[in-house]
């Protein structure tokens, strides 16, 4: 059996009605492929993985995969996941969100999960828009771009999700694009292996809504845009600031060691019980 066939049979739900809801050419499918390959490599049993999602196009992902999955409400995926992790710390909890889920309606949860350094992996598909509801502006819609609620031009400035995660205290932050599928595999593998709050931001495209409104062409052209506007962290280190002006960095942005929430909590419990000295 070809490797891809094995992965499909192993991880996608056979009882689910395909095709999925995503538009032809959507980047979420590429992300799903990378997610499955990365999970397969980690050696986790399917039953030890929990996928938690919010609402939106990205939020639909857990419906199709054969793990423990929880499809929650808009913006609350991280908080449901926090509860799961506290109740069953041995489970690998992966949270799948869009930009709306992660940094708009759930933005508060995002910075606090990072600050708390709870052992979760957040995978964020950033397509600059609310795709499912019809292409409304999101906090990652770039300044000057169009959406159905900023039909002439967006007057606000976008969040940089990865930088937000770094500042808020995430121990691992990686950024990739759906053009760089292999990079996504490796970023996810690293994020899963990390103890603490890890983030993988995936720059994707919504050619149906965002691309069409902003005349960015087909899904292929939007992926070429990702290729032409991304620079690896290593290469960026060699470049001047002006050369990086319209570029974004991909690769591992942060990989640092900080004690995770559950380890810190365990320490306090031992002190409080008097079984260990402070």
């Amino acid at each position: 059996m070809a490797e891809i066939t094995r992965l499909i049979h192993e991880y996608l739900r056979h009882d689910k009605k395909f095709p999925h809801v995503w538009c032809p050419g959507c980047g979420i499918g590429i992300m799903l492929g990378a997610l499955i390959r990365a999970i397969d490599k980690t050696g986790y049993s399917k039953d030890d993985i929990v996928l938690v999602s919010g609402i939106g196009c990205t939020g639909r992902l857990p419906v199709y995969v054969d793990f423990n999955t929880l499809h929650t409400t808009h913006g609350r995926a991280l908080t449901f996941a926090t509860g799961i992790k506290l109740a069953k710390p041995r489970l690998k909890v992966i949270v799948i969100m869009g930009d709306g889920d992660a940094v708009a309606i759930g933005g508060n949860h995002f910075i606090h999960a990072a600050r708390r350094n709870i052992d979760l992996t957040a995978i964020i598909v950033n397509n600059n828009v609310y795709g499912m509801t019809g292409g409304q502006y999101s906090p990652t819609t770039p300044y000057g771009m169009k959406s159905t609620t900023t039909i002439y031009s967006n007057v606000e400035h976008a969040f940089n999700i990865s930088e937000l995660a770094v500042t808020a205290g995430a121990v691992f932050v990686g950024r990739g694009t759906v053009y760089h599928a292999k990079l996504l595999d490796s970023l996810m593998e690293k994020a899963f292996a990390k103890v603490g709050f890890s983030v993988v931001e995936i720059i994707s495209h919504c050619h149906t809504q965002f691309g069409r409104l902003n005349r960015m062409g087909t899904a292929v052209e939007m992926m070429q845009w990702q290729r032409d506007h991304s620079v690896t962290v290593e290469k960026a280190a060699q470049m001047k600031a002006e050369e990086l002006k319209d570029k974004f960095k991909i690769g591992v942005l942060v990989d640092r060691e900080l004690p995770a929430y559950q380890d810190e909590y365990e320490k306090v419990r031992k002190w409080a019980k008097g079984t260990e000295k402070r």
């Binding site: 509801t133 409304q136 609620t149 039909i151």
Partner: peptide, 20 residues
């Protein structure tokens, strides 16, 4: 306003009327 199906067309159109 914040978009949610099936309210979206109301606020989208209002955003346009304000912007233009």
């Amino acid at each position: 306003a914040y978009p949610i199906t099936p309210q979206t067309h109301i606020v989208e159109h209002l955003s346009e009327l304000v912007a233009n």
